[in-house]
Nucleic acid binder design. Structure first.
Lengths: 334, 334
DNA sequence: CCCCGGCACGATAGCGTTTACACGACTGAC
DNA sequence: GTCAGTCGTGTAAACGCTATCGTGCCGGGG
């Protein structure tokens, strides 16, 4: 049943070595030979055994993507960008979920995986988080997405600046009591979250320190969490007149909370989100738009590059620009 | 650098064969030996080479998931369910996108993949679609999600019945001009879409044939598409008073279209969606809720089962119940 | 006391590729 | 006409594991 390269070689009248070289389009092979071998292979719809190929020292032809979530919009969209590039390059994608702060922290089998893949795509995870169990030490090609780390290639946005500009937009509109809906209390495991908080705080303290008050809510980056957080903010003695949400999904929840209180986003309380979620337009949410799929695609390209270029280039840190899209959810205070 | 099972065996004072058996917990090994070997392996943080293991006749320890989209809510959520089960079973997930009717139809390398994985999870794809290039002929374990096929295990919902009940809900409310927003015109490549259309048509023709009129729009299962489709329906001489959308995302778009026309979903035009999208609650959309993540998890479990049970069980077709959740987007006509 | 079956383990032959290394046949330069 | 240098190809040794046999050993039934 199993047809091997030996069979192909015999039928094409060459040695297995030549067959192997021909199938991989190596340079030192007669074009005529390549054509002959390929023809035989096609006729039998033969494909090399990746296992044997890998064992004999070749590449695995696949990369792993580590992500804390699959179904949340941002991550799913990054993955779609990644997938598209990899499919183009005939490289397989191994999906591994790790780093969800809410989930039981199971150390992902990076060690085992490192045998199975040529490189790693690490999405949003702090590379030194314990759960990544020494991913950094592994000298396999890797690219970080949405995070940075000295000496490791990455593609990310300027979270601090984006958050600062978004918040400043609220300040410029005249808001003084500005709330923040972040992910989780305490030190976030996500670098981006910490950066966004810094950006927010900078903007709020500006132009005159103390001129604005700020309040925090925590929405765990989910819609429901955003709703809960907004409710908490509204329950305070002096609720904020504007709220910056660290993700669109939390902003959606906040919108719902407002509606259930008989309030309208933009009219009663201004809202700014972050991400550029598919539905942000439909809900008229002012938000920081980032080209998420493109980020994933870029990272995938860089990883492929790094894999093929064995030459140890110096790691690049790509920064993708974002833009604030103002919609009707943010307006001057009443 | 590379440490092999031979090293482990030597250090544990056993043969490579015994080491291999010990590491795999086979039955005919002294528990004491297992412990000793495992200890040595742990000390060196050794993991078997999957390539070698596979080559020598074992399993690959991974499965492939074929899906037409990654970032759309339904698919991303199915995947998250799948991933969770597979991670539990220490099985790797290979992600492959194929079957998007809008994308260039590249035949996915099922043949190549079949060398790399122990089984296939096929999400929403009609298994006989040409793009699947003989996946059905491959006698590898496989499970269909959201589709059925004779002789192949599957986990799905009763799309026809669910669509019928959803539409009937609109009829019962008193609506007579009921519109449908489907995916694409012509014969859909998705079995589920065809079934939902049948269910819709049955309900509309009931109780008295001809008592209701129906109009079609096509939204390609996207938010923007839904908006466009709704605009088209509203532009007709006698716009429908209620619309059944084949997905929540299209319903969201339809809502937006209504809003831009100064209309309100539920008051002016009733809307029913399909899926139970995370945001359907926040938008007060009446919808057919299906336990999407659970569907993925169930399918993954079945696949694992099928892989371990070499015994050719007769294929099971699991049907997961859905329920209509009525919210304020559907009300009696004005 | 012998034989047989079950048990824990050892030796070894692959599994299907890739990759040195070797080899002959040309080519052009001297 | 010899010699170094390509070029296209063949030979065979890995690659790291598992599967198939085979080998002692022990205990119990005849």
């Amino acid at each position: 049943m199993a047809i091997t390269i030996r069979d192909i070689a015999r039928e094409a009248g060459v040695s297995t070595a030549t067959a192997s070289r021909a199938l991989r389009r190596l340079h030192n092979v007669d074009p005529a030979t390549i054509a002959r071998v390929q023809a035989v292979a096609d006729r039998h719809s033969y494909v090399v055994s990746p296992a044997a190929s890998r064992l004999a020292g070749g590449r695995t032809g696949s990369v792993a993507a580590l992500t804390p979530y699959v179904s949340r919009w941002y991550f799913a969209t990054v993955l779609s960008g990644v997938e598209q590039v990899l499919q183009e390059a005939e490289t397989d994608l191994l999906l591994l979920v790790a780093g969800d702060p809410g989930r039981q922290a199971r150390t992902p089998p990076v060690r085992r995986l490192s045998q199975r893949v040529d490189g790693f795509l690490v999405i949003s995870l702090d590379p030194d988080s314990p759960e990544l169990g020494g991913l950094l030490e592994l000298d396999a090609p890797k690219v970080l997405v949405g995070t940075k780390w000295p000496g490791v290639p990455s593609v990310s946005i300027d979270d601090e600046r984006a958050a600062r500009l978004a918040t400043q937009h609220l300040v410029n509109l005249g808001h003084r009591r500005i709330g923040l809906i972040a992910g989780r209390p305490g030190r976030s495991p996500f670098l981006a979250e910490r950066a966004r908080k810094r950006g927010f705080e900078t903007a709020v303290a500006w132009p005159a320190p103390g001129s604005s008050t700020l309040e925090y809510g925590y929405g765990d980056f989910t819609v429901d969490g955003g709703e809960t957080a907004m409710n908490a903010l509204l329950a305070q003695p002096h609720p904020p007149t504007a709220v910056f949400c660290m993700s669109d999904e939390m902003a959606f929840g906040a919108m719902r909370a407002l509606r259930l209180h008989g309030l309208v986003a933009g009219r009663d309380v201004s809202l700014v989100g972050f991400d550029g979620h598919d539905l942000s337009g439909m809900l008229d949410l002012t938000t920081v738009v980032q080209p998420v799929a493109q980020i994933g695609a870029t990272a995938a390209q860089m990883l492929l590059q790094e894999i093929s270029d064995a030459s140890g280039q110096k790691p690049v840190e790509v920064e993708i620009p974002t833009r604030l899209v103002v919609r009707s959810s943010s307006r001057p205070p009443a």
